[in-house]
Amino acid sequence: MFFCLFDIFHNINFYLFTFFSYRIRIFASFFTSFLISLFLGFYLINLLNKFNIYQIIRINGPKTHYLKNKTPTMGGIVIIISIFLSVLFWSYSYNHYIKYIFIILFSYGLIGLIDDYFKLINKNSNGISVKYKYFFQSIIAFILSFLIYYRCKNVIFSKFIFSYFKFSEIQLDIFYIILFYFVITGTSNAVNLTDGLDGLVVIPIILVFCGFLLISYFYSDIYISSYFNIPYLCNARELVIFCSSVIGSCLGFLWFNFYPAKIFMGDVGSLALGGSLSVTSILLHQEFLLFIMGGLFVLETLSVILQVFVFRFFGKKIFLMAPIHHHFELKGYFEPNIVIRFWIISLIFVLFGLFIFGIH
């Protein structure tokens, strides 16, 4: 249904490209998604409060979270709508990269929405089973991986290149699809795990997308790409618009999500953002850089893996609770202090990733 709007906006896009420069479209997409996110945020919070649609708190979670049981959830709907409308209005809607991004944004958002819905009707924090949730994520990831690989089949998508290190290149060919799969499912679930405190995941998402905005801008400019000795990707031009829209939308959502949060993102937002972040890195051929710039997501995921592994085989806990942000909560740290320090860590990872990209 959403993709039918491509035809409606096609002629509008043509005139926008005629009268507005590329840089103006970048800033316009940011402010459009920001304003839509603010407007829809106010409306959705009132609507969810009216129908008593509140976050279901985990029974085995930190006790302080019980105070949040009257906070509306599923705020990720605001993020998805504001990104979609902004990108649809300011980007070239027939760009294949934008279509791939929209596929993952809506499909993973739908999985998250169903999961949030089941939590509400079942009155517990389990939602749909992990098995079914991961199954549907995997199906979508494989389908999209096939689409990207065969539609963009060239030297860029046949080799995994550690372009940051000399003489490091792995020929993958069709096995690249397996890499795509793990990047998509891993990133979406890592972002989902990180979304555990008020405003915690929003700024890291913004920072990483800021990094990819710069990289996609470099890739889409023939002169800059030649200077950095990186492939020129004309389609990456519209990824700049997408990244700008995500940044604006998330900033608008942060207005309501920072401590004390007036609304939570829910799985509908975290899965959609994580999925779109992973596909952005794939389209730019920067999967390894995503691992660096998204280092905070990696740390959060590793804390869960280590906790489960050590407890299962040795019967002991490394952390008081996983993911690791809950460990610091139980240690007595004030929630905003944890969040801001994690933001700083995320900023360091992003700057380090951009530094590596710049010196390769």
Score class of each variant (00 low, 15 high):
F17L: 14
E335Y: 09
I24H: 11
W343Q: 05
H65N: 08
F51T: 03
R237C: 07
S244F: 01
Q55P: 02
Y164D: 10
L284H: 10
S303R: 08
I263V: 14
N229K: 12
F146T: 04
I174D: 15
N124G: 04
I128R: 15
F14Y: 13
Y94H: 07
G76W: 13
C152A: 03
F14S: 09
L179E: 14
C4R: 03
L273K: 00
G112E: 11
S225C: 08
N235V: 00
L120C: 14
F228T: 05
L38R: 06
Y227F: 09
L110V: 08
Y54F: 15
A322M: 08
Q137E: 14
F256I: 12
I345A: 07
E335M: 02
N257M: 10
M321Y: 13
L113R: 08
L296F: 11
S226T: 03
F212V: 00
C234P: 03
I161Q: 13
V155G: 09
I161C: 07
F288I: 14
E238G: 05
T18I: 08
S37V: 00
L290R: 00
L296D: 12
S29C: 00
S249E: 02
S276Q: 04
K153D: 15
K316R: 08
G353P: 05
L88I: 01
S86G: 05
L347P: 06
F242L: 00
L320N: 08
P231C: 01
Y164W: 10
F258D: 14
S226W: 08
V279T: 09
G295R: 01
I104N: 01
V78M: 05
I98D: 04
V298W: 11
S346V: 07
L179W: 13
T32S: 08
F355P: 08
I206P: 14
I24Q: 14
Y43T: 07
L113D: 13
S129P: 02
C4S: 13
Y150S: 03
L351R: 11
K68I: 11
V279A: 11
L85C: 04
G199E: 15
Y227K: 03
G186W: 09
F309G: 06
V208Q: 11
S37D: 01
S168R: 06
V310F: 10
S244K: 02
S138P: 12
E169I: 06
T185F: 05
V240D: 07
K316F: 15
Y117E: 10
H325C: 03
R151P: 14
I57E: 12
K119C: 09
F6Q: 04
S270H: 06
E287N: 03
F3T: 07
Y149I: 00
N154K: 11
K153E: 15
Y108N: 03
L290T: 01
L144F: 06
V130T: 05
G353V: 02
F89Y: 14
I348F: 05
T73F: 09
V208L: 01
V268S: 11
C243H: 14
V310D: 02
L38P: 09
L320A: 05
N69K: 06
G353Q: 06
I26H: 10
I57F: 11
A28G: 06
K99Q: 08
N257L: 06
L113C: 04
M265G: 04
K262D: 15
F328Y: 12
S37N: 02
F291P: 02
S163E: 15
F39A: 09
I59K: 09
E329I: 00
L330A: 06
F209W: 07
